[in-house]
Design a protein around this nucleic acid. Sequence first.
DNA 1: TTGAAAGCGCTAACAC
DNA 2: GTGTTAGCGCTTTCAA
Lengths: 351, 351
Amino acid sequence: MKKAGVTLVDVAKLAGVSVMSASRTMSGEGYVSEETRAKVQAAAKQLGYAPNAAARLMKGGKTNVIGVVVNDLTSSVVNCFVTALSEEVRKVGMDLFIYNSLGDMGSGNGARISQMLHGLWDGLVYVLPRMTDDYLETLEKSSSPIVLINYFRHETTLPVVRGDNVNGAHDAVRHLVDLGHRRIGFVRGNAYTGQSDLRERGYMSALSDAGIELDPALVYQGDFSQQSGFDGARELLALDAPPTAIFAANDGMALGVLNAIREKNLRIPEDISVIGFDDIPTAAMTQPPLTTLRHPFGEMAQAAVQELTRRIQGQPGRRQRIEFPSEFIIRASTGPAPACSTSRRSRRQRA
Amino acid sequence: MKKAGVTLVDVAKLAGVSVMSASRTMSGEGYVSEETRAKVQAAAKQLGYAPNAAARLMKGGKTNVIGVVVNDLTSSVVNCFVTALSEEVRKVGMDLFIYNSLGDMGSGNGARISQMLHGLWDGLVYVLPRMTDDYLETLEKSSSPIVLINYFRHETTLPVVRGDNVNGAHDAVRHLVDLGHRRIGFVRGNAYTGQSDLRERGYMSALSDAGIELDPALVYQGDFSQQSGFDGARELLALDAPPTAIFAANDGMALGVLNAIREKNLRIPEDISVIGFDDIPTAAMTQPPLTTLRHPFGEMAQAAVQELTRRIQGQPGRRQRIEFPSEFIIRASTGPAPACSTSRRSRRQRA
DNA sequence: TTGAAAGCGCTAACAC
DNA sequence: GTGTTAGCGCTTTCAA
């Protein structure tokens, strides 16, 4: 381990050349004779030289680094976005650094981050941000290019890449209706990000399109956690007229729903159908595999990176809002409504 | 949105003071009169001034930022460490930035990262690194403080914080033996990180301590994925003398094992017991909840950060190897060996 | 309490 | 091809 503080001057001195030749060798720009290059490289290696990034940046150059800020890295959705972003960013020859705000999206923290960003990043992406108004204001004033992914709460001047929630949820519930379900439960997430509300809107519109009246008893307030999905399903299944299908506002809660159903020894999907949202990796591996919806992570990440690089290069942003339809993924957790469903029962009553 | 490139000179000019006063105001160090301070702050706000981090760093100051490099952010274990590190780092008043190498731990990439690190981070943590020898060499030569978490492959001069794998695995298998199991399957992970081997060593030593001969047919080569756990369990259960318990080298594979068992309509743990390793969040939410082992993420993260900050402050590292015992978490996926187990059968044969 | 000057490590621009 | 000069934005001297 060499001492810190080896500078280009040291390398040049040892190699017996000028600082500029050393610089050219290290950065790979401009003409250097093979001989000089070799000498410099040898010297650099011997001294354990590492270029000082800060000094390089100071020349006003791009850092080729994009930062992404998230609230909570344990969220599968966030994870999918971050991984997709890593790949996209790499494709355009840049690097991605991730900052986990651990949920602290207060304005003080916002100021901290936007300070750190200045000069160290070429641009910033916020994934699923859940920030205070102050924070948003700080960002809007920032001089660095910024793109938000899946931000829904307020109007903003910042560019936003979004997945569609309403239509996706509508499709899902419509699918259940088409399968003959009439009593369809909904498990809400918390309101932080605004996504749960949108998904609920899709749920309601699909019901109303099908002429089914909304039964408030079938809507449970969860918090996006698996546990809350479990609790919610337990409650819904205990109703006098339990649902024959449950739509959860995210996959995490849907997993809890599956567990609760299994606990009651009901079969999926014969007795009850389940749909989630997000298509987290586990969703494909449950038993039965979960029918769900997904935002197109890859495409959204690509759009965000494109929009960001455009702005980094000083070109005008192309679009202020880029919306992607969600994909409906039908797996084995949904099936025809059971024969003993409400519709059948009502028919019997008529008879 | 203000134009980029607002500098301290601009602020000072607008405020009608010297650059130094502006600097002192912004950094909060040194004496500035209330009046000057107010003027400067007003000017800064009006111009949308943000200090240029790069320039600050160049003065050789600390950045108060620690970087963590991971291979794969989708791994739950990595995720747990990263989150724990975020918290620890924040506790000591620093910030954590995460870099996802996406599995590219070749030496070229290593050089890239260690270049970026230089000057931008005060120190680096590598979590579960799976790097080439070249890469490791680059790191060892680096002048920045570095700590590795859960690195097992080679000897290194870098400080390493490790979880114990051998004894943990030994405990787990010993537990099964105590419950009467004699035929215990093992599902290996791939060898990249060296952890699977260590866990297997614990498995073998526990068997041999109990006087059980190792049956190679009971060891399946997986790759840490849920799918491979599923495949492995299928194969083991199809044996003429199937195991009454399966120990998987990680929780992901254990989840696959659970699915395969369920698919065969066997009961857990009445017919067959399952143990995983890592205690990923889902492990507590399976049905039945998974018996497993965990590295103490929080304590390990704390140790890593402590060791790193010590080195950042120029103090000598306290220890080169810090090892933590793993915790054995008994949940409901393990139980007494079934009555029709091999031991019983052999007794019958004797009779 | 404030300001002027010097310089951090590097590279763009211009000579040689 | 190579070297010299200047300066990025900031802070650490030191002097006023």
